[in-house]
Nucleic acid binder design. Structure first.
Length: 175
DNA sequence: ACGATGATGAAC
DNA sequence: TTCATCATCGTA
């Protein structure tokens, strides 16, 4: 089946709907030297808006950093944490509704910080339009994720998120 | 299993 | 200016 780049419409839905759809899709990174890195997404987490206490935009925290999440869907929300790691999310839903899906793992790389390192993704991609970018985007390569192979668990690393910490917003594809 | 790591944003 | 962090690695 032919490759099809994911468009704006794909991301113009609530993160909880987009997240499972990203399983089986491909993250594509074209390096400056022309080399192309590709990996199939097999782990994601949904961050569902201002009421989500696990989100950086919890309580309507609209700051320089979170501003990207308040913008149009299909853009990259990249941030730095723990003094050494970059993590990448894709903005979902619509303008002024700060939802995003965190890409946590690929078939070739396990771990949200390891994949950004492997793909040379850092702060310069914060706000990048993944629909139009020539360096970083997402593709459908014809893989159909069987719903029976999708597991959900609580999200990782948000013990402070109150009732939100146990919600099944982490999606894993077991191959 | 556990502590060190250590930049950045955001709160105080 | 002080604090907490959407992890990971090295050492047990």
């Amino acid at each position: 089946m032919k490759k099809k780049r994911l468009d704006r419409e794909f991301f113009s839905h609530p993160a909880v709907e987009v997240a499972p759809l990203l399983l089986g899709k491909y993250l594509v990174r074209k390096l400056a030297g022309g080399e192309v890195l590709v990996g199939m997404i097999n782990e994601v987490e949904a961050y569902v808006g201002e009421e989500d206490l696990g989100s950086h935009a919890a309580g309507g925290r609209r700051t320089k950093r979170t501003e990207v999440m308040y913008g149009a869907p299909g853009h990259a929300y990249v941030y730095f944490t723990y003094g050494m790691h970059w993590l990448i999310n894709v903005v979902c839903s619509k303008v002024d509704d700060p939802q995003a899906v965190l890409i946590r793992g690929l078939d070739s790389v396990t771990g949200p910080a390891r994949l950004t390192k492997a793909f040379s993704i850092d702060g310069k991609f914060h706000g990048e339009d993944l629909i139009k970018s020539k360096e970083l985007w997402l593709e459908d390569r014809g893989v159909k994720a069987n719903p029976k192979d999708i597991r959900t668990t609580p999200r990782i690393g948000i013990p402070y998120a109150g009732k939100w910490k146990d919600k099944p917003l982490r999606f894993l594809l077991s191959s």
